[in-house]
Amino acid sequence: EELPSFSPYRGRSPLLHTGDARAEYLRRRAGSEPHSPFGPPPSFGDAHEDDFGSLDGLGEREVLRVDTTQALELPVPLGAGWKLTPFVSGKASAWSEGVDEDDQPTRALAEGGARLGASFWKRVGAKLHQLAPFVEYRAELERRDEDGTPVVFDAHDRMLSGDFLRFGSRARLWTSGESSVLDLDLIGTHASARSDEEPDGWLPLEVFGRLLLDPHGHEVELFHEARYDLETRRTVYSLLSFGTHFGEEWGVQFSHQRGLDSDARAKFEAASVSGLYRWTEKWEFEARQSFSLLEDQGLDNKFVLRRYGHDIVFELQSSVREGEGSSFGISVKPRFGYRPPRVGYVPW
């Protein structure tokens, strides 16, 4: 669970300096298997330890995490659309407590490398086709982890570093203005001198695809994200989403997610359906339901009533989450900077 965060950003050129800082208060909740208070307690004596997943036994924890990234880049045009960009970057993170509650872990990472990229385009009638290939080498210059091990909330807490050779391409086809019919990204990465001490090799191939159709003026969008293990030839993660909207009032999204663990066993598989109804310019209703296809049971249900005021957005939210029970929340957010909800990935 991610609670309040703050993220400033600053950048300038021609020697490009980019930097960000982020402070987050994180809370981790541990669910439990529901059972009747009148029946016998659940027994796990015959269950294999691996069936519980990669639990670390730390239970519920609350941590303040602060991190910053600073980078310098110097783009050098090479001609014919190509550009070489040498760069150096530094990342620093600190946690209020670690696995041992008396620890206050810190991590500092320095990297350097270069990126070679280009952008090509071709106009066909009123449409534009774009292609942007790139290759990048990033090397770890120095890394220091001190004062204990962080509690894991997300991928940032167990950051993989080392020497990486990345290459790929992004294509946007049949583009008109800011909209395109087909987007396709492919990124491959070879890792060596890894911080997790795993052998050198290829990381999963990253694939992003988006298809936007407009039959009879009705927008329908299909989104696909996946990670393919090139060595085992397995899809280790996939997300498939179908979204559309009906006029300016109704929107609906259906999605499916699946992931494998390190032993190529199904770690999770879930499906969800979301809906959004705009009653008026001021009132909005949002609902979402997701369920596990592995356990054949619901995961969570959420219902939101939203009221847009002149300066604020008022929300009433009710939800039921497996292992945690029901909850009710009230929030008041400033209208300035507020991002309206989206159903699926369809622009609305």
Rank of each mutant, 00 (worst) to 15 (best):
S169T: 15
L305T: 15
F120W: 13
A47H: 05
A23D: 10
R158N: 13
H48L: 11
F246Q: 03
G31D: 10
E281H: 06
Y25H: 12
H224S: 14
E2S: 11
G168Q: 03
P8Q: 03
V66W: 14
R258Q: 14
A94E: 09
G323D: 05
Y345K: 06
A132M: 07
A21E: 11
E178A: 15
Y237A: 05
F314G: 11
F38H: 10
V320S: 15
P75S: 05
S96D: 03
S331P: 04
G329W: 12
E322D: 15
P215H: 05
A94T: 14
G298M: 08
E73A: 10
E269H: 02
G259H: 01
S169G: 14
F134D: 07
L240M: 10
W348Y: 12
F223S: 15
A193M: 00
D196W: 00
A30V: 13
G45I: 04
S327E: 13
E1D: 11
R335I: 04
E284Y: 04
W202G: 00
G90L: 02
S255D: 11
G323M: 06
S292Y: 00
Y9F: 15
G31P: 15
L316V: 15
R115I: 01
G117H: 08
L239I: 04
R307P: 09
P34M: 03
V220Y: 04
W82H: 04
L212A: 15
E197W: 00
R234N: 14
T235R: 11
R342H: 07
G177N: 01
G275T: 08
E269R: 07
S96A: 06
L16H: 10
S331V: 06
R61M: 01
A114G: 10
T189D: 11
S318L: 07
Q104V: 01
E60W: 00
R29N: 12
F303P: 06
D46H: 08
G209W: 01
F314Y: 09
L116P: 00
D229Q: 04
L211V: 08
D102Q: 15
R288A: 10
G57A: 03
T232H: 05
V207P: 07
G98I: 04
T189I: 13
H216P: 00
R144S: 13
E248T: 10
I330G: 04
A132S: 12
A114V: 14
D46V: 08
F120V: 11
P41V: 06
T232Y: 00
V151M: 07
A110R: 03
D200T: 10
V63D: 06
